[in-house]
Design a protein around this nucleic acid. Structure first.
Lengths: 334, 334
DNA sequence: GTGAAAGCGCTAACAT
DNA sequence: ATGTTAGCGCTTTCAC
């Protein structure tokens, strides 16, 4: 009746098989010379006890947890949901577990998660958070890779070719006859490369930009309200919209529907992201599709390379961002 | 120059503060009697070294990891994405971390994840996987709670009131004049409670059911093709569709658009789930909204209760499912 | 009020 | 081909 509930340890297996714990460990890791009979006996004892090696003990000894922290704004948004799935699979394939953190685009939350992940001794960190950076990233000893976010010169960043994406979307609108295409985005500024693409095309065409921002993470009834208000205000001054995410593009199309405008005749709309969920929900939407799978796999590759290299202080040299090409998918809104 | 790269341990802090490791541990856990000067000195040493307690060591000693495994088909689908976020937050609030596993609705993958989670000594498991059950759930010593999935009598299940949801959707279609509403779902059978609601309403109205199934996890081009084919085949025999998820409902609406049918006049459509993402992408869709937040919080409550009770073998008594009410959101498709 | 010693489950080094 | 010993970082007795 002893050790009720307790998980069996290597010692229990050893006792049952009549060998030493070391031998069991050897069987487990397939290391050194073992006689077939020993292997069999140990394997049988393991099966009998339903033994599962304790990864916590292994992690303590080995100084690595084979666990990676993933910080994203929220996997409730299809884009980040797909990123999370791709990351998790790429990591699992390489034997790593995924600790998921949803920061909701709030710096304080991200900070707490970062500290916790350090305490949990994750081997590395992939961050796709969408808020201002936090100072802790400068001092962390963890290997970090970001997705679509420049954190610091020495932190690798993997992303879609946003500039070209912004260009393609805007060019399409202009080609289709738009004389005043507006940009709807979350944060406007020099670091917004989709905006840079938009501005470049408009500058070449001699058109004034019209930019509307709706802060990332604005809760839902409010978010639609802001989009509607901007459209009501600009209704006679714009004839097209490039939205830097598909959800916003859909909100624009719905505003047109509710106010009796025809898309694309009265208003042309292009979105961004092209997730499977949105392709299914709104197959009619013209959008710029990000290669999420490629981005995620590359992020994992780069991170594991750094982890397995020991992430040694290489003087923290600057690294260039890795960009992957986007795809324009033309639907019925242009 | 020693211990370059190594994380500082409690011993390093102790040495710097000129006390014993035990004392540092006491400060850390705020246990026993400490003089204020000792506390301050230790706190300062910790800050100086940027010390973070090693949760791996704590877990090994304490026999609990404060980590919960979450198995879902894929957080790329908005419903499961929202579930994941709600679960993760509810868990974080109670001091638990979330190990995310996306099973893609495949039993073998789910099995592998379950074994891994056992090895990682998670304290419990929340499963919302959407495939046949696997035998390992019968033998696991882990506390388990499921979301929208009956695994076994003794495993608690939390879910939306699917039967009523199915009823509400079908009743609405009938009220609006549908004489032959079809059901589009992933797995038909007695365990599909949304289908049960649909059948109950049709039986009362003396209408024959029309059921189309598209297997969960069918990859995208194929999925749309199957839906289109079914609709082409049934086009003259049905005048409404209740789809048990919003993405399928959108595919139905898009088929109508492409084939020149008017929704709702020629075809009425009701979906299911009502996630924020789909409310944003398709605000015009009539749907039955699941209370995801409530479901997730309840699942976490039930799980932590079991974890903190020690999950002792209480003879594994049967537990009734916990159900939360759904909300009908009428849009422009009915 | 503080410290020394033992041990959580595992594996690497060093025997034999 | 297998066993013994020590220790990963922490907390928990038990001393003083």
């Amino acid at each position: 009746m002893a050790r009720q509930g307790r998980e069996p340890t290597i010692a229990d297996v050893a006792a049952l098989a009549g060998v030493s714990p070391t031998t069991v460990s050897r069987v487990l890791n397939n290391r050194g010379y073992l006689s077939q009979s020993t292997k069999d006996g140990v394997a049988q004892a393991m099966a009998e006890l339903h033994y599962r090696p304790n990864e916590v003990a292994r992690a303590l000894l080995g100084q690595r947890t084979r666990t990676v922290g993933v910080i994203l704004p929220t996997v409730a948004l299809p884009f980040f949901g797909e990123v999370a799935v791709s990351l998790e699979h790429a990591l699992a394939e390489r034997g790593y577990r995924t600790l998921l953190c949803n920061s909701l685009g709030r710096s304080e939350i991200e900070r707490d998660y970062l500290l916790q992940l350090e305490s949990n001794r994750v081997d590395g960190l992939i961050s796709g958070a969408h808020n201002d950076s936090i100072p802790e990233y400068a001092t962390t000893r963890l290997p970090v890779v970001t997705i679509d976010r420049e954190l610091a010169d020495h932190i690798p960043n993997v992303r879609a070719d946003n500039t070209t994406g912004g260009r393609m979307a805007t060019e399409l609108l202009v080609q289709r006859g738009c004389r005043r295409p507006a940009l709807f985005t979350s944060t406007s500024g020099p670091r917004n490369l989709r905006e840079a693409g938009y501005r470049a095309v408009l500058a070449a065409a001699g058109i004034e930009p019209t930019i509307v921002t709706v802060a990332f993470g604005t809760p839902e009834p409010e978010r639609t309200r802001l989009i509607d208000a901007a459209l009501d205000r600009l209704r006679d001054q714009i004839d097209g919209v490039f939205a830097t995410d598909d959800l916003t593009a859909c909100a624009v199309v719905d505003w047109a529907r509710r106010t009796g405008r025809k898309v694309p005749d009265d208003l042309r709309v292009v979105g961004f992201d092209g997730t499977n969920a949105l392709r299914a929900a709104a197959p009619w939407l013209t959008t710029v599709q990000q290669p999420i799978r490629q981005i995620s796999r590359a992020a994992v590759e780069v991170l594991l390379e750094r982890i397995e290299a020991g992430s040694g202080d290489d003087g923290r040299p600057a690294v260039a961002p890795v960009e992957f090409p986007v795809t324009l998918i033309e639907g019925a809104t242009t």
